[in-house]
Design a protein around this nucleic acid. Structure first.
Length: 716
DNA sequence: CCGGTCGTTGTG
DNA sequence: ACAACGACCGGT
């Protein structure tokens, strides 16, 4: 009897591939093993998801598995089932998701190296080549290159054709090789038991919450909760629950926003849990990541801490899954394979029958609604500070900073108190424009006005990063370009310096401090009172270790509000709350919000730190407009060079959707919010439906029939 | 007629 | 995704 294996490969396809298991490999291969398989003249690594002896379609010339890479299955059936559910929910490819869960070196594939032969060398002298062949050979004259690099560098269409011709003429040598490294490179484990430094001083309501969770926790039932309260109190409850999980000998998964993957968090965990904890984050070296992965996989650690991708970590037997700062959008992966780690955490916890705990001081409207309805939401706000807040109505035409703000700044400076100013807009001006003909420089690839950055005197596209030197004369009419509109953080910094030349002001944004290390440095300077006023963007608001101040100024939070996004109000509210978090708890601390929309409910309720008030209003709007959580919402984004063919593609897609739809609202096709990005046009279709099942049905049927360059984003 | 581009199709 | 294949296109 022949044995066959269904193998899943990292391709953007909803498809498995069938291979013959050669007799020599029969005893080795298992479901969950990595296998090296021939695929289109190359070798790729796949995961075995099924082994069978029958049910093989006839007339298919199957290939044999080349090698089994694992002595024992690398991926458990639980993990397979979890990733499958996640990929189905987000219309992502299962194979790509599985690949994303593994360190890159664990997924070897054929690498092609091209080099010039002696014969090719001669051919170069004899001039019997086409222009393109010549270009390729000249490039390879320097040194051998990989085909991928050559393709990027030469930007030639049908390069593969040229290469195969050159190869058959023996002008180049093609070397194909697969590097399979051994996985046995584990860091030796320090076995000394760590003295866990844990302080469980829970106040009354935190204790109530923790206690209720623990009472219903039997180690074999999936249950989920929401902790609504300030971060310090949430953390105390988390640690209480972590201890509980550890006594039950269960593992813990602790998700934090991307931005929080800082040294301080790492230190906190290593101090508390020592070698029990593994940390994952995006800026880790490949080597460290492999080591941490192996430690988690071999159950050497009890707690895994990391950003969204940590939901794909190989921890087994989870007892507790924590998602802190649940409102944070960095949990949503927008690139393929797209997924939302928040719902990922749900699938994961359910799979392992673990306890799932979300937490935030400003929850998403969706979660607050859902958990409130189920009575699984704990409000642990009691005893929190009474901040004095003030909304200053001000139109920017009358100057960037209102007189009232300036007066407060002056007072703080006199009292030698540090101040934090937030303005959620990078650069000096979001666009510049000619005062005569209104010409505005735009990105050549993205259809977006270029932002002026004064620090390096350049115009920058905030979508693709393309930049050019500032232009002073209008290319249309020759007039001087002078108007600067949509003033950003650099303008605020300049204004503060101009008003208060004697004090130390510093900007804090991704342009000043891109790397976490530089951010830490600036935070440290502020900590040591070497800076009087920090002017920052969202990046500053997210800094965990910033010392508390008695004056926080938020400028024009409506910059977030104007986004054409159904979550704009929520984002506005949340960004103010983020900023207000840096206020000290004493009586005199003050939050000032300067805005041109003083009556907008998201700004009003944020000023009073009144989440419930905000939620009550926002949920009405969501219900009225059929937005999540009252509907499930999916965005299908099409990208292409040619707008006309895009239009046809999307119209066809839309009419197919309509054919298969039952109770699905279809919006569009319409130009996406960013109509052009990196030289590609973008058109989107939005789907909304009360029942996820209806939406699923329509989309699945349509996708079966259509193949186009598109990206699917599931919002809820 | 050929070299090159573009869209479609299959990958086991 | 990527490569292979066939239709089309524009210069000669």
């Amino acid at each position: 009897m022949t044995l066959f294996a269904e193998v899943i490969l990292s391709l953007p396809l909803d498809k498995n591939f069938l291979y013959i298991v050669p007799d020599s490999q029969k005893d080795l291969v298992r479901v969950g093993s990595r296998v090296l398989v021939p695929f289109k003249e190359r070798k790729r690594t796949g995961i075995v998801i099924k082994l069978k002896q029958r049910g093989v379609p006839k007339g298919l010339k199957l290939k044999e598995i080349h090698a089994v890479l694992d002595k024992t299955p690398l991926i458990s059936t639980d993990f397979l089932s979890f990733t499958k559910k996640l990929s189905a929910y987000y219309y992502s490819s299962w194979g790509e998701l599985l690949q994303a869960s593994l360190p890159p070196s664990f997924v070897p594939k054929t690498r092609t190296t091209l080099s010039l032969t002696d014969k090719g060398q001669k051919a170069l002298d004899e001039e019997t080549l086409s222009d393109r062949e010549r270009d390729v050979l000249l490039f390879l004259k320097k040194r051998p290159y990989s085909d991928v690099f050559l393709k990027r560098k030469l930007k030639m269409t049908s390069l593969s054709l040229i290469l195969s011709q050159l190869e058959s003429k023996e002008f180049i040598h093609v070397k194909k090789e697969v590097k399979t490294e051994s996985l046995e490179r584990k860091r030796p484990l320090r076995l000394e038991p760590t003295q866990l430094e844990m302080d469980f001083s829970l106040d009354e309501d935190s204790y109530q919450a923790a206690n209720r969770i623990v009472t219903h926790w039997d180690g074999k039932t999936f249950l989920s909760y929401y902790l609504f309260g300030p971060s310090e109190k949430r953390e105390a409850v988390y640690f209480y629950l972590i201890k509980r999980a550890l006594t039950l000998r269960k593992k813990v998964l602790y998700l934090v926003p991307e931005i929080a993957a800082t040294r301080s968090l790492i230190e906190k965990f290593q101090k508390r849990f020592g070698e029990h904890a593994a940390l994952l984050h995006s800026r880790m070296s490949t080597r460290t990541r492999e080591e941490e992965w192996s430690r988690i996989h071999s159950a050497q650690v009890d707690i895994v801490v990391g950003p969204r991708s940590a939901v794909l970590s190989p921890a087994e037997d989870l007892g507790l899954v924590i998602v802190d700062e649940e409102q944070d959008e960095s949990y949503l992966q927008r690139e393929n394979p797209s997924y939302d780690a928040r719902r990922g955490a749900y699938f994961r916890a359910k799979q392992d029958r673990a306890i799932l705990v979300y937490g935030s001081s400003a929850p998403t409207v969706e979660s607050y609604h859902e958990f409130g309805k189920r009575h699984c939401l704990f409000n642990i706000w009691s005893g929190s500070s009474k901040t004095h807040a003030e909304i200053v109505s001000h139109r920017i035409e009358r100057g960037l900073l209102s007189p009232r703000i300036i007066a407060r700044l002056r007072k703080a400076i006199q009292e030698k108190k540090p101040v934090l100013i937030f303005h959620f807009r990078r650069g000096y001006a979001s666009y510049i424009t000619c005062s005569r003909c209104s010409y505005t420089p735009r990105c050549r690839d993205c259809d977006i006005a270029l932002t002026y950055h004064r620090r390096d005197d350049r115009l920058v596209c905030h979508y693709c990063g393309h930049s050019l030197r500032k232009i002073y004369d209008c290319p249309e009419c020759g007039h001087k370009i002078i108007k600067k509109r949509g003033l950003g953080i650099e303008a605020v910094e300049e204004e503060v310096k101009r008003r208060f030349p004697q004090i130390r002001v510093l900007g804090f944004d991704s342009d000043v401090a891109k790397r976490p290390k530089d951010q830490e440095k600036l935070v440290d300077l502020f900590q040591k009172n070497k800076i009087d006023i920090l002017v920052g963007t969202q990046l500053l608001a997210h800094q965990q270790e910033l010392s508390k101040v008695s004056l926080v100024v938020v400028l024009y939070p409506e910059t977030v509000l104007v986004l054409s996004d159904y979550r704009a109000s929520q984002k506005t509210f949340q960004s103010i709350i983020q900023a207000a978090k840096h206020l000290s708890h004493d009586e005199n601390s003050e939050l000032l919000i300067q805005t041109a929309f003083p009556d907008h409910f998201s700004i009003r309720s944020a000023a009073h730190l009144d989440y419930v008030g905000f939620h009550t209003q926002e949920i009405k709007f969501r219900r009225l407009m059929n937005y999540p959580p009252f509907t499930h919402m999916v965005e299908v984004l099409f990208q292409g060079d040619n707008l006309r063919s895009l239009a046809k593609q999307t119209r066809d897609f839309s009419s197919l959707l309509k054919e298969h739809s039952k109770d699905v609202e279809i919006l569009g096709p319409a130009l996406a919010a960013v109509p052009r990005l990196r030289g590609k046009n973008r058109v989107q279709i939005i789907l909304k439906s009360k029942k996820r099942q209806d939406l699923d049905e329509a989309l699945k049927q349509t996708l079966r029939k259509v193949r186009a360059n598109k990206k699917i984003l599931v919002y809820y």
